[in-house]
């Protein structure tokens, strides 16, 4: 029996001032979710995350949330103001908005230290945020998200611009969090390195083209509808590999 959803979009149209970006979206997140959103640039992936997050209101349709559900967000690194004067510890602490006083309490400092430790950046608390590698920056925002003890974690392109081993780490970390019962939804451009490893995928291009496990949605037909280009799908060592057929041997995504 499926658990009742924490967030459910029903027949949602949404967009920005001048135009609608998403049409007729039905989508639900629960604490078992581990879903990747894929689609071309401008397809509305980030927009879908904003709807789940609640920072964007639907133009029509409904968004239902379980009462008191805690949702955390990890932004795309490209959108962050890296020149802002802030240290890693300050950045993580910031999202503990329950506390009013400027400085951290003793327990809070311990919590921050714990979560940084857990993410493997325990000794970087006093660094400026720009003085981290891409993978460490990703973990810092993950720390900021986790310290709020979310039930749902939303991540925008968590593996863009990081190397293969960091991507691996991030994926494992997310798998651990998923095992702990945190619902996870992320967007990705990386079909082979990321999407194919997730249990559940949503293909988006202004509407939901398909949703299901990789076997079901990583097919030439669905990919063509989503990306507007013909791709081939191969099996390699039990994994799906998407190949751009217009240029043999070149990996898509």
């Amino acid at each position: 029996m499926a658990p009742s959803p924490l967030i459910a979009l029903k027949g949602v149209d949404a967009g920005y001032r001048h135009s609608l970006v998403l049409h007729g979206v039905d989508f639900a997140v629960d604490h078992r979710s581990f879903t990747g959103i894929v689609g071309p640039s401008g397809a509305g992936k980030t927009t879908l995350l904003r709807l789940l997050l609640g920072s964007l209101k639907p133009a029509s349709g409904t968004v239902e949330r379980a009462p008191g559900v805690a949702v955390s967000y990890v932004p795309q690194l490209e959108t962050v103001n890296w020149n802002f004067p802030i240290t890693v510890a300050e950045c993580v602490q910031m999202s503990r908005t329950g506390r009013r006083l400027p400085w951290a309490s003793r327990t809070e400092r311990a919590e921050v230290a714990d979560v940084l430790e857990r993410l493997g950046i325990g000794d970087l608390g006093q660094r400026h945020i720009r003085e981290l590698s891409g993978g460490q920056q990703q973990r810092m925002f993950l720390a900021r998200a986790l310290i709020r003890q979310p039930q749902v974690l939303l991540l925008d392109e968590p593996t863009s611009g990081v190397d293969i081993s960091t991507r691996h780490d991030v994926l494992h970390l997310l798998a651990d969090l998923h095992d702990e019962g945190i619902g996870i939804v992320l967007t990705t451009h990386d079909l082979n390195g990321m999407a194919a490893h997730l249990p559940d995928l949503v293909c988006v291009n202004e509407r939901i083209v398909a949703q299901g496990p990789p076997d079901a949605v990583i097919t030439p037909d669905v990919l063509e509808q989503t990306f507007g280009a013909r791709m081939e799908v191969l099996q390699h060592l039990g994994m799906l590999v998407v190949v751009d057929s217009s240029g043999p041997g070149r990996l898509a995504g």
Partner: peptide, 24 residues
């Protein structure tokens, strides 16, 4: 004002969108 809203002010200055959905 700054003393009692330190984090809210910092959060909205650094990252208003996430601040918004974090209850600020």
């Amino acid at each position: 004002v700054v003393f009692t809203r330190y984090r809210a002010l910092l959060f909205t200055t650094f990252d208003p969108e996430v601040a918004d959905v974090s209850g600020v």
